[in-house]
Write a protein that binds this DNA or RNA. Structure first.
Length: 507
RNA sequence: GGUGCUAUCGUCUAGUGGCCUAGGACAACGGCCUCUCACGCCGUAAACCCCGGUUCGAGUCCGGGUAGCACUACCA
């Protein structure tokens, strides 16, 4: 049987990084088995819909290289494939049919209790649960009779359809990661399957109907769904679909880096890192959330980092390309326990991937950053400069702090560097150095080294003393690549100009 | 409160009864390199939640505790 998996996010905002990992694991699993990866939009809660969220999800997955074979995707915003529509809000007719089937077979019933009444009941009765013990006291087609229920509906009264859970039955779900999980149906309540208020099903009904109709073979989702998995099994049985029921795998959660609990958007704000793949402007509440892409992350680094948060092969390999992940991934090597989100390691991954890029590739990415700082430089020079500095940064934007002095002469001189490296004799050394360099025509690193080092030795000035002073003149601080690499980029004229300018300020 | 899931260095994890004197990576710390700052390299410190049981032998299997998390909506 062809493997078919789905990622089924809700368009209620930016796609959380945990959701990204769920999508990734689904994708890896599908690719490895030569199967299909579907994207379905679960917009059954009309009140939580956020404009732009769906487009965001599609763009985010595309950026990360998670390709969608069927359903909503970049080249088919309204879905492609034979199992559509792929937006649940467009599947109302389908759900009507299956809700009716459950009603007719006695697996579901109409209920008229208003949200207010239910809330009052919960206040009155501690741990109130709408189930076999209590449904007889509530306002529903079981207590009212079917005729009265239909009369009320005909009168336009709002209602919901609830699933009738048979009491005291042990339900076992086989989870691919955790093994058998058994719970007793007594702890399940008569879940709402459909609400007439917005003429939409709830998640529980919609996901079973859609997974069945879309011929999903494996449901890979977050651990927060584990407690309701037995309910879903009951639903499959009620429909008579137990023989084609998909297999389940519940992924461990992504936890906050400090303390305990699920990773949330607030943690990112608090600790200063993104929890979303892309920057998101929420039209509904006006908030802006930062994204990995805008922070300078490479998608392959985010993928590698995320893949290892909850999955690990035997052995010590840390760097995995998408193809390696596809080849090596397996659900039985997914951990059972939650993984704290280690942002520092994410940075390290980006560092690794940045080193793998060519200087030219990085130059293309860095040119816009330079432009933002008002620098218009030749790409070949930029690439050369990057080659000298890339090993010290984690992100492309950080390149600016490491390279700015190549493009802009220092206007101020780092106090600490000057205090430590600018000696009493430095002005005199620099004046002598200027004279030495002025007469020099061969400006290659080798020639300059061959000229200056013997001079320092002859005068017994000390290499560190002279070179650091020189460096402060050129860079403005005691940092940066090898000095002859800097003079090489700057050229004779600019080098001498900078030393003279520094002498004006430092004396 | 109820139900379920989980439990190895600070963090991600390797470990599937003897190969464990518990391995790797991030972070931390120290050293080397060096004209500076980094990078890099080398090294140090750092863990089997607790108590029982099974076994010649347990991080690994079993039971019980404890702790953490998740769920407990006309949200997903």
């Amino acid at each position: 049987m062809r493997v078919r998996v789905r990622f089924a996010p809700s368009p209620t905002g930016a796609l959380h990084i945990g959701g990204v990992r769920t999508a990734l694991y689904n994708y890896l699993f599908a690719r490895q088995h030569g199967g299909d990866m579907l994207l379905r939009i679960e917009d059954t809660d009309s009140t939580r819909f956020v404009p732009g969220a769906e487009e965001y999800i599609i763009e985010a997955l595309d950026w990360l290289g998670i390709k969608i074979d069927e359903g909503i995707c970049l080249d088919a915003p309204n879905g492609k494939g034979n199992h559509g529509p792929y937006r649940q809000s467009e599947r109302r007719e389908i759900y009507h049919k299956y809700v009716q089937q459950l009603l007719d077979s006695g697996h579901a019933y109409y209920a008229f209790d208003t949200p207010e009444e239910l809330e009052a009941k919960r206040k009155e009765v501690p741990n109130f649960q709408y189930d076999a013990r209590t449904r007889g006291e509530m306002t529903n087609s079981l207590t009212l009779g079917l005729d009265e229920a239909k009369r009320r509906i005909a009168n336009g009264e709002k209602y919901v359809v609830r699933f009738l859970v048979e009491p005291n039955e042990d339900v076992t779900v086989h989870d691919l990661i955790r093994g058998d999980v058994t719970i007793n149906s007594n702890i399940l309540d008569d879940k709402v399957l459909y609400k007439s208020a917005d003429d939409l099903p709830t998640y529980h009904l919609a996901n079973i109907v859609d997974d069945h109709l879309m011929e999903i073979t494996h449901v890979i989702r977050g651990e927060e769904w584990l407690p309701s998995a037995p309910l879903h099994v009951l639903l499959y049985r009620a429909f008579g679909w137990q023989d084609t029921m998909p297999q389940f795998a519940h992924l461990p959660l992504l936890l906050k880096p400090d303390g305990n609990g699920k990773l949330s958007k607030r943690d990112g704000d608090r600790l200063g890192f993104p929890v979303f793949p892309l920057e998101f402007h929420n039209e509904k509440d006006g908030t802006v959330s930062s994204g990995y892409r805008e922070s300078g992350y490479f998608p392959e680094a985010v993928i590698n980092f995320l893949a290892l948060l909850g999955w690990h092969n035997t052995g010590d390999q840390e760097m995995f390309s998408m193809n390696e992940l596809i080849a090596q991934f397996s659900l039985d090597r997914v951990s059972k326990s939650g993984a704290k989100f280690d942002y520092e390691k994410g940075k390290w991954f980006n560092h690794q991937y940045l080193q793998l890029k060519s200087n030219e590739e990085l130059a293309d990415l860095f040119m816009p950053v330079l432009a933002q700082h008002g620098v218009n430089a030749d790409k070949a020079v930029v690439a050369k400069v990057i080659g000298l500095t890339k090993d010290r940064v984690n992100f492309v934007p950080e390149l600016w702090e490491q390279t700015n002095f190549f493009f802009v002469a220092p206007t101020e001189f780092d106090e600490k560097s000057v205090a430590k490296r600018w000696k009493e004799d430095s002005p005199r050394h620099m004046r002598e150095l200027i004279a030495l360099l002025e007469a020099q025509n061969d400006w290659s690193a080798e020639a300059l080294d061959g000229l200056v080092m013997p001079w320092i030795a002859e005068k017994e000035y000390g290499v560190g003393i002279v070179m650091n002073a020189f460096r402060i003149c050129l860079v403005g601080a005691a940092r940066g690549p090898h000095i002859w690499a800097i003079t090489d980029i700057l050229g004779k004229e600019e080098t001498l100009r900078r030393v003279r300018a520094a002498l004006e300020v430092l004396k």
